[in-house]
Design a protein around this nucleic acid. Structure first.
Lengths: 116, 116
DNA sequence: GTAACTAGTTACCTTTTGGTAATTGGTTAC
DNA sequence: GTAACCAATTACCAAAAGGTAACTAGTTAC
């Protein structure tokens, strides 16, 4: 591989990672997505309790995920009104990333707790 | 799957993702790791130029990666002194995560630029 | 001495992130 | 009317993240 093509390839790799980080940035987005991608539909309150995210943050994160077409929001005609959040089909393409991070986290925890 | 085992599994998944995020948090760590894991050894200045990270931030990030045993630092007896950074063997276990994020970023960019 | 190269460090600042607590607004049950 | 449930939203605050510019310190070449 020539030096030039290597540089270009590297640049693609860097910006690709940064593009991904831009969409799933922060402490909570991948946690929310893992719940919805692997666990299916959740209501707002369920998500908040299950993840431990406060309503303010959860609302903001869900909105951002919705903008990026990773989460769908459905208002249900119940009394009182409930809202269902679900991973979109497109969010399914993130499953590889989510699963890789889950596996590595489990692996890392074993390493750390085994050592200390 | 029972409700209880599902909850436990979910909790493991959430904390596994958070464990991973704790180690590779921020805007730059995965970018640095992708350079070192896929591209081999780099000196401080090379890394800074190649990634576009300012010395202050790069120094901080490398230090944190070193603490988590993902990066090794080797001072070379050259004039002037140079320092070589390399991904550790342990960092290789993150390759799955890095590659998944690179692939998704490329996929996502195609989707976005294709649509708009 | 001066410039240039290496690898950082320091001071300073702005922006972003994330958190708590209280509140809104609509509906139902008592 | 009052309490309770749902889904947020608002105001306020603290900490972290990240950036720029200038500077340190050691060595070499001129």
């Amino acid at each position: 591989m020539t030096r030039e093509s290597s540089d270009v390839a590297c640049d693609n790799v860097h910006s690709a990672i940064q593009d991904t980080l831009y969409v799933v940035n922060g402490k909570w987005k991948l946690v929310i997505l893992s719940i919805l991608v692997n666990g299916g539909i959740r209501r707002f309150g369920e998500l908040s309790r299950e993840s431990g995210i406060s309503p303010r943050i959860l609302s903001k994160e869900l909105h951002e995920l919705e903008i990026n077409q990773l989460v769908s929001r459905k208002v249900c005609d119940t009394k009182p009104v409930t809202v269902e959040y679900a991973a979109t089909e497109y969010a399914g393409t993130l499953k590889e990333v989510i699963d890789a991070m889950v596996r590595w986290g489990q692996h890392h925890r074993k390493k750390i707790t085994g050592q200390e």
